[in-house]
Every structure is written in C-alpha cells, then in structure tokens.
Design a protein around this nucleic acid. Sequence first.
DNA 1: GCGAAATGTTAGACAAGGCTAACAATCTGC
DNA 2: GCAGATTGTTAGCCTTGTCTAACATTTCGC
Lengths: 151, 151
Amino acid sequence: MHDDPHEVLPAASDDRSPDLRAEAFQGVRAARRNELAEDYVELIAELIHSHGEARPVDIATRMGVTAPTVAKTLDRLARDGLITRAKYRSIFLTEQGRALAKECRHRHEIVLRFLLSLGLDAETAERDAEGIEHHVSERTLELFAAFVSRN
Amino acid sequence: MHDDPHEVLPAASDDRSPDLRAEAFQGVRAARRNELAEDYVELIAELIHSHGEARPVDIATRMGVTAPTVAKTLDRLARDGLITRAKYRSIFLTEQGRALAKECRHRHEIVLRFLLSLGLDAETAERDAEGIEHHVSERTLELFAAFVSRN
DNA sequence: GCGAAATGTTAGACAAGGCTAACAATCTGC
DNA sequence: GCAGATTGTTAGCCTTGTCTAACATTTCGC
C-alpha cells in the first residue's frame, strides 16, 4: 500500500491535502464552464476580423455544430454581456466580449507557438492548443512565452 | 482586414480550413465528455491504492462536490463499464476502469513533471496538470516526456 | 422584383452534471 | 446492543449544450 517503487513524485495525489485538491478540481470545473464562451468569442472576433462580420452559419461550420446550437449559445453569450445581436442580423462583440477575445487570442497564440517550438507539427499543435489554452494559468503562460523566446 | 502587422502566425485560425477546425473542436468536445470519467477513475484508483478502498465520501471531498453528485456520476461510470458497485459498499474498478486509470495516471505524471521541469511551482503545476492532461495528444505527450528526460 | 436557395429562429427532446432536502443504512462508542 | 453520528441513496430541480423538425426571413440570380 506504500513505498511503491514507481512512486517517483511526491504525489500531490496523496492524502496530504484533499482540500487543495478539491480547490483544484473546482478551478478546473470553473474553467470548463468558460471554455465554450471563450471559443465562441474568439471565433467571432476572428470572423469579424477576416470577413468583416460574424454570421451564425460561419460559426456553426467552424465549430462543427448545428445552427440551433449556435443560436442558443449566442443567446447565452448575449445574456452574459459578451455580444449583442438582433434577429436575423450578424453578431457584435461588446466591450467585455472584445476584451475576452483579445485575452483568448493572446493565450491561444502563446500556447500554439510553444507547442510548435517544442517540435510539434502544425495541425496537432492547433488541435492541442484549442484544448489546452483554457487550462493554462498565468504563471504557466509566462513560462511558455519565455520558452518560445529563447528557442 | 488583412496584413495585420500583429499577424505573426500562419493563423490556422484562418479561412484556410473551416473543416479541419470543426474537427478540432469536435475533438475537444469529445475530450471534454471524457474528462470527468477520467478524473473519477484516476481518483478511485488512487484511493484504493492509498486507503485500500474508494468510498463515495472521500471522492466527494477530493472532487469538491456533494455526495449526491458523486452517486449519480458513479452510476454513469458503472453503466459505462468502468466500475462496479453495490449499494452502501465501496467502489471497484473493472478491468477497463483499471486500464483507463493507468493511462490517466501516466499522462498526469508526464504533464506534471513537464510543468515542474519548466520551472513551475508544485501547487500551480498540480492544478494546471489537472486541466491540461485531458487535452494532450499522444505526440505532445511524447515531446513532454522527452523534454523532461533531457532537463 | 420574384421565386428559390440560403440563412436564421423556435419548439421541444435528451443527457450530463451540478444542487438541496429528505430518508435509509451502516458504523461506532459506550 | 443500541443511540447517535456518519455515510449513502433517492427524488426532484436547474442549467448547459447538443440534436431534429418545422417555420420565418433574407438574399441572390435572373
């Protein structure tokens, strides 16, 4: 039950701190709740930048979901003050939405560059970055950025 | 709308491949659906290892959720063939559950060590690893492992 | 400028994952 | 060996995020 020869790490896993652990999981759950909003806002900013506007149909295509899913999600984003929208019109980011988009893009780029610096191929890097970016703390992001700079 | 001086990367963001992008997001969503199961199975394995058994109350404490939430989740895990359980008894992993737990522990350790090698403090590393481990591809994991070895 | 195609919305279903309140079973200390 | 504490379960509610089917609006081609 102990002294496992494979046990190399101090194992934060350990009994040492169930509470710290609970906090960690709560943090992860909080991050998970924001992931979708972040993905949407980031994508919307991008579409506006590259196409001049963000239409639900383009969001649906790029997110790989159906139009009604997009509609419902956009309603939530509007409710949460990240976007504004009018029926049958394209979408705009609020000030808050723009700030979030900027932050997300920043994180995304650093994570992506970091993975590329590490030697990962572009496609996998893009995929992994999409998943990882929401779970990287400020400190870690700094370390990633530093690594990119010196490589 | 173009030739943004800040546009340093080839921008997989770009219009170049909405479909590839959609696939990436679908992959992320798939990973998200497994995250919780992985967290539970990993924790259950750990509890069995360190305490001899896995009880719902300990899972609840460490995951930072309430007992009924744990109960419902355990039912799903049982339905999916990852654990077996009997009323008012502690939990066991199936063969499949054990395999998944092992794989998760492996990923977790590599990600954790990687973050530590990069210079991150233990607590943040643990927190970030918890979130990141589910979104790291096989290739990336190999690169992480290689980095750890040579540092 | 009209009709077909494309796009957007609404309604309604469903599963996951969280909660509280209430109850049931087990365990523990005398 | 029983009473109270601890642990586990059930019921029921809520939100999120996905879908399909049906309908509404806008846009585009000619």
